[in-house]
Nucleic acid binder design. Sequence first.
RNA 1: UGCCGGGUCGUCUAAUGGUAGGACGACGGCCUCUGGAGCCGUUUGUGAGGGUUCGAAUCCUUCCCCGGCAGCCA
Length: 555
Amino acid sequence: MSTGNFIKDIINEDIRTGRWYGRVATRFPPEPNGFLHIGHAKSICLNFGIAEQYSGICNLRFDDTNPVKEEQKYIDSIKEDVSWLGFDWKDREYYASDYFGRMYECAVKLIKKGKAYVDDLSQEKIKEFRGTFTEPGKKSPFRDRGTEENLELFEKMKNGEFKDGEKVLRAKIEMTSPNLNMRDPVMYRILHTAHPRTGNEWCIYPMYDFAHCLEDSIEEITHSICTLEFEDHRPLYDWFLEELGLHHPQQIEFARLNISYNVLSKRKLGLLVSEKKVEGWDDPRMPTISGLRRRGYTAASIRDFASRIGVAKANSTVDTALLEHCIREELNKTADRVFAVLDPLKIIITNYPEDKSEYFEVENNPEDSASGTRELKFGREIYIEREDFMEAPPKKFFRLAPGRESRLKSAYYIKCNEVVKDSSGSIKELRCTYDPESRGGDTPDRRKVSGTLHWICAPGAVNITVRQYDRLFTRENPDEAEDFRLCINPDSLAVNKECMAESSLKDIEPGKRVQFFRHGYYIADIKDSKKGKPVFNRIVSLKDTWAKIVKKEGS
RNA sequence: UGCCGGGUCGUCUAAUGGUAGGACGACGGCCUCUGGAGCCGUUUGUGAGGGUUCGAAUCCUUCCCCGGCAGCCA
């Protein structure tokens, strides 16, 4: 399925010309300041996928250069997510912080070359001196300090002799460059903050532009794949490695993923978590890898999605329907069908003996002959789905109604004779008769019936909790809203605790995925589901033609 | 409007001077003991104008539109 893309074109050309002696080395370099989302999954699949395809390697590298924002718990979650997605970085688990010593040496080298200097300007002044898009920047008065003084000052920065923000180390490039990134970018800032891994060893930390190219270089990466917003930084990436005369990977930028009705930025997802709009990073509504996992998406379906969306340089927004298609396609083949009635309506089969019960054999998955069958108990009192009955059905309603006959899947045909209502007029139960001739779900005369319904035998039915998830946002592009939080879908979660299901679900293993017949695919929640007290998450609904008809006629 | 980068069906993505194709969606049909699945079919696209060429999505040119960039974030 995987199509060619412009990055593979570049790699193929490099292999043809022997640029890297046939070697391919990529890396996935997350900053551990949040949980990974499906946009990262795209990058993970790309980087690890390329390494796999070209018999190369892909490193997992934590870009931990800003201790103010980074935490060990994020490192742990990232490792879990990448691994769950099905990728193995072997022993190549690297950290930018492991290179701090070497980076420091590189900075000293640049100072000695006259290519870096310690600046005393305040943050505000640096900003002011940088100029704007249309005006060139101005040189800092500290720009021409002597090498010895710079060396001494930089060492003092390292030794903690200055306060946060008092001084920075800057690259000496060109204050009039049309590319603002080249106007003497900051290389090091002072941060008296403990680092999750290096503790208090350092109080100066390298900035992304200086650090990242060195990380890639040290690891002898060949193709450094990143997102479009770093395009303007490439000249800097190249400048540092050129000035330092180091191994020089090629930076290649591609468009980050956007999915309709979603936000895909760590900052915004973090706000949903910190403001308790969702229950956590792994809330099943979140497009995080942990959220999708908990929702019930499989790693294979996410990898399939990543291969289908392709890789390009043009900004784009992928339709949520494609992700849903990927998981439906997989689960249709692999998930066992079970009966669950989400909104029960009781039926008394008046001509069925009160003391009788029997069992019917039902196939587990018509798409998988190896999945076998199971026995389902049947009796005089059953539940069907409330929406499978209508007192005054419209033309296209093909289910049970007064005087109409429907098939109970794999059991009998039943005919509705009487509608019993309570004092408020709402339907309490149905009185039906069954046709003994239809045993197993078919009659000798092969007569047509009005639909096939799933059902649950009332005695023995188990109560289950079902969480019906819907899209988290009501707007196709929440990023375009004044505030993305204002278009959160108030109905993104509906919990139904009154559902009834066949007895086999009582002790379902948490994490197991099934199809609720005629409803959709569900997973026994890995955190909240307990044997004997199952809780299900709706992964994705079945495609629902009837719902579409209703919607069309209604509008 | 400084610099950088982009514009191909509704959406995503191929075609690298030689029949504009695929996937998802939508629509229609067939089939069906899931209004599911499956099968078949339909629809719609090269941002605009010039030029080069036997032939242009592709090369040249002018224009239009969209995105990114002014953190001591990554």
